[in-house]
C-alpha cells in the first residue's frame, strides 16, 4: 500500500509538471499562432454553406461528418443504456 502511494505520487508529480510546462509553452489565449483556417471560415461561410452562423456552419457543414459521429456517440450511449438496463432471463 505504501509503495503504491509512493508510485502514484511520483508519477502524478511528473505528469503534472509536464502538463504545466505544456500549458505554459502554448501560445497565449486569444492570440492564435496561425489563423488561416479561421480566416477561411470567416470569408467563405456565407457563400459556401449559406448560413449566417459560422459556428453552425463549421459544425454541420465543414465538419458535418464529425457531427454525425458525435450524434452517433449519443445514439450508441442510448442503445448501450437500454441494453444494460434491459430485462435478462436468469439462468
Amino acid at each position: 500500500m505504501e509503495g503504491r502511494m509512493l508510485v502514484a505520487a511520483g508519477s502524478l508529480t511528473i505528469v503534472s509538471i509536464f502538463l504545466i510546462f505544456g500549458a505554459l509553452l502554448i501560445h497565449p489565449f486569444g492570440v492564435p499562432n496561425a489563423y488561416k483556417m479561421d480566416q477561411y471560415i470567416i470569408d467563405h461561410t456565407q457563400n459556401e454553406s449559406g448560413a449566417n452562423n459560422g459556428v453552425t456552419a463549421v459544425v454541420f457543414d465543414y465538419r458535418g461528418f464529425d457531427t454525425l459521429g458525435e450524434a452517433t456517440v449519443l445514439f450508441t450511449a442510448v442503445a448501450g443504456v437500454i441494453l444494460v438496463f434491459r430485462r435478462v432471463k436468469k439462468e
Binding site: G69, T72, V73, T76, A77, A79, G80, V81, L83, V84
Partner: peptide, 10 residues
C-alpha cells in the same frame, strides 16, 4: 469514442 462506448455496452 464510438468504438469504445459500443464495446463497453457489449
Amino acid at each position: 469514442e464510438i468504438t469504445s462506448i459500443a464495446s463497453c455496452a457489449l
